[in-house]
């Protein structure tokens, strides 16, 4: 994912987007079939995880004491069977999706905010601000990401909001570099010069004049960050350091299902498939957005 964002850094937005720009973007996006598929899948997934729990007859932590001990088979009452504690696996899968998607979105938001902030400051002010911020970015890029997340999670045992912070705090660097390169180019453009001549101050120039012109690449990077964040959360939870049961997440569902791989493999297959399809859709969507917003030719 990070590799896709890197490419995005090399293209530049040309002018302030006029009205027709968005029409062209939409047109180009609709031609990107995988991206359209991805968007549809994500919308569908969002509907299911947001509204599913209201429709389903079971609670995510509701245990059927008669079924405790072993995973139960798939049947009409329990489409994906029950888990080792007699809980409906379908309900947990859907609720787990809610948690995983929420953590993924929130983590990506944090990362995008941090990346945009750091990249904008570095690119706009240049000089020592740029040097310090970019050296810091280099440092963060040079520490192996998963071990660092694991280390932080095991030392501090984060609550879900803190977990979001940790995940977001470790995947912002690509965005920062991207935004910086956008700012470096844009700050020299005529419309910025004009605004500056009219007396616009630094923060105002950044937020009002430059940022809107970099919105395309930032959107793409933010989209791809959602995929990274979901993957990171699921890896952490799988290793037992992320979201703690009984709150389900796709990662900890996989963890809980792994002892029953030979007797109830569907319990492990389903959440993994959900992660795969969701992250795949996010990546398709990001690719489509890039093609639409930053045409290469």
């Amino acid at each position: 994912m990070a590799d896709l964002t890197r490419e995005a850094g090399e293209t530049l937005a040309t002018t302030a987007p006029p009205q027709s720009y968005w029409r062209r973007v939409r047109k180009r996006f609709m031609r990107h079939k995988p991206a359209v598929f991805g968007l549809c899948f994500l919308v569908l997934m969002a509907i299911v995880v947001v509204f599913g729990p209201f429709v389903l007859p079971y609670g995510f932590d509701q245990q059927d004491y008669d079924l405790i001990g072993l995973p139960g088979p798939m049947n009409a009452e329990h489409w994906l069977g029950t888990d080792q504690l007699g809980r409906d696996a379908t309900t947990r899968l859907i609720y787990g999706g809610r948690v995983s998607l929420a953590v993924g979105l929130a983590g990506a938001l944090v990362a995008t905010f941090l990346g945009t902030l750091i990249g904008a400051l570095a690119g706009f002010y240049r000089g020592w601000v740029d040097t310090i911020l970019m050296r810091f970015t280099d440092i963060m890029l040079s520490i192996p990401p998963l071990p660092l997340v694991l280390l932080l999670s095991s030392l501090f045992r984060p609550s879900p909001p803190l977990l979001v912070g940790i995940i977001g705090g470790l995947i912002w660097m690509g965005t920062a570099r991207l935004v910086r390169s956008q700012f470096l180019a844009l700050r020299e453009r005529e419309f910025v010069e004009a605004a500056r001549a009219l007396g616009a101050s630094g923060p105002r120039l950044i937020v009002r004049h430059i940022l809107p012109n970099a919105i395309g690449p930032i959107t793409v990077a933010a989209t791809l960050a959602v995929g990274s964040a979901i993957m990171t959360e699921s890896a952490l939870s799988f290793l037992g350091f992320g979201i703690l049961p009984p709150t389900p997440s796709w990662g900890n569902l996989l963890n809980a299902a792994s002892p029953w791989l030979s007797t109830a493999p569907w319990l492990a297959i389903a959440p993994g498939l959900c992660i795969l399809l969701t992250v795949l859709s996010v990546n398709f969507l990001g690719d489509g957005l890039r093609d639409a917003m930053e045409p290469r030719e």
């Binding site: 994912m1 590799d3 995988p34 995929g227 993957m231 699921s234 890896a235 799988f238 290793l239 996989l254 792994s258 791989l261 030979s262 493999p265 492990a268 297959i269 959440p271 993994g272 992660i275 795969l276 992250v279 795949l280 996010v282 990546n283 398709f284 690719d287």
Partner: peptide, 25 residues
């Protein structure tokens, strides 16, 4: 291209479990 997209979207730990399930179990 689809394959490579799937490749970067597949959780490593999930694939590891599936491989164990298929080739060992």
């Amino acid at each position: 291209t689809l394959f490579s997209f799937a490749g970067i979207s597949t959780p490593v730990f999930w694939m590891a479990l599936l491989f164990q399930l298929l080739f060992s179990v």
